[in-house]
Design a binder for these strands. Structure first.
Lengths: 217, 217
DNA sequence: CTAAAATGTTAGAATAGTCTAACAAAAAAT
DNA sequence: ATTTTTTGTTAGACTATTCTAACATTTTAG
């Protein structure tokens, strides 16, 4: 049985591994807001459990078993987020913290029931994929709105950041997952995008925002 | 902020206090399955926080603030149990363990939403009262079926034990909260009761079972 | 009313997870 | 190719919660 702490290390390492080619002790330390020596010793411990493959001064990597374990935790997290939004009426900017706690509940059946109640969702409220019952994730090949060109038609599928302030901004812009977006114009000066949403409303999006809006063609 | 451990001590002391006139360190130790010296030091710590009033060699008591805190934890526990039964389809014998974990989630709003979703229930799936938002409990004055006499008509309102084996037995006897019960006959030898349930089915209940069936007249 | 039993307390050690300080290795910069 | 900076590691200490062993007090029984 894994402790809550160990689960958090695995999860963080998993996320970092998808974002970067190599993950250092320092990366993990920053991401968890835990000092390097602590991370170092925990990494050794998890290596002892066969969840992380660790060699001194080398980048950190999850083993197959570590990947699976992390995937299963992320699965729980995202199922819970979905439940909080769909059944308890929380906003997508409010669910992370609560899911962060509930994901550690020890009860396979609890999460199975939630999954069933939600009719086996494939993505969470932020458009991120929910790992399957083996912890396996199917990565979507979305692109950043930032990378789109003028006159391109795309669909808003996911967000690149789940930061509170970003999600609240998207809400205020009245943007929702599934919205159809047409790029009208890109300012040469600051890359600000003028877009048409659902063939109805025009909006200006800063490059930073556009970089965190993930779309499919 | 209280730790999960502290919350468990308070909750246990609260329950013991309702069952017994005086609660000793030994009682608490047994109830938590934690050794006396450990309990002793935790009790001192909680006394320092103003949650337990403690004097050496004297019975343990919750302070007002301790009672309120314990009541609020029990509120969360029972709300969650109700949710698990009503929305996730768990049996009343399966919910305790999971609620034991979820009760410690730090999010007022989460429990408020659950409360709302359940339409502000007053009792949990075992018929136990759910404390109000101030941690206040309204105790019901139910009596044990054991204490009833022949030909008495009563209603099954609550269980005196939430032990798995007892709840499963009640299920197997097809008894449900709210059922009308008529005492037909009490065996002089072993106090076994022959009862009529919902004017339809006759059942024999051992004294031990009857002692854990709480009814109102 | 004393002796034995039960209960309670203190002292000291163990574990998990955290930290700081000091040292070591690798990477980057001159 | 050294020096400096960054990153990584080791050692040792701290807190929370637990334990065992030893001792103290209270309660119960003769």
């Amino acid at each position: 049985m894994m402790t809550l702490t160990e689960e958090n290390y695995l999860k963080a390492l998993f996320h970092l591994s998808t974002e970067n080619e190599e993950v250092s002790v320092l990366d993990l330390s920053k991401s968890l807001a835990i000092k390097m020596p602590t991370v170092n010793s925990m990494v050794k411990k998890l290596s002892g459990k066969g969840l992380i493959s660790y060699e001194k001064y080398k980048p950190l990597m999850l083993t197959q078993s570590g990947k699976r374990a992390a995937g299963l935790i992320i699965r729980k997290h995202r199922l819970v987020e979905m439940f909080l939004v769909q059944h308890l009426g929380f906003g997508w900017d409010e669910v992370h913290e609560i899911a962060e706690q509930i994901e550690h509940i020890k009860s396979q059946r609890f999460f199975d029931r939630i999954d069933q109640l939600l009719d086996f969702p494939k993505v969470d409220p932020h458009g991120s994929p929910i790992p399957d019952t083996n912890g396996e994730i199917v990565f979507q090949n979305y692109i950043k709105l930032e990378e789109c060109v003028e006159n391109q038609n795309i669909v808003f599928m996911s967000v690149g950041s789940s930061q509170d302030s970003f999600l609240k901004l998207i809400d205020r812009l009245n943007l929702k997952l599934g919205d159809k977006i047409k790029v009208l114009e890109i300012q040469e000066f600051d890359k600000t995008m003028r877009v048409l949403v659902n063939e109805a409303i025009e909006q200006n999006l800063s490059q930073m925002v556009a970089a965190n809006i993930l779309v499919r063609i």
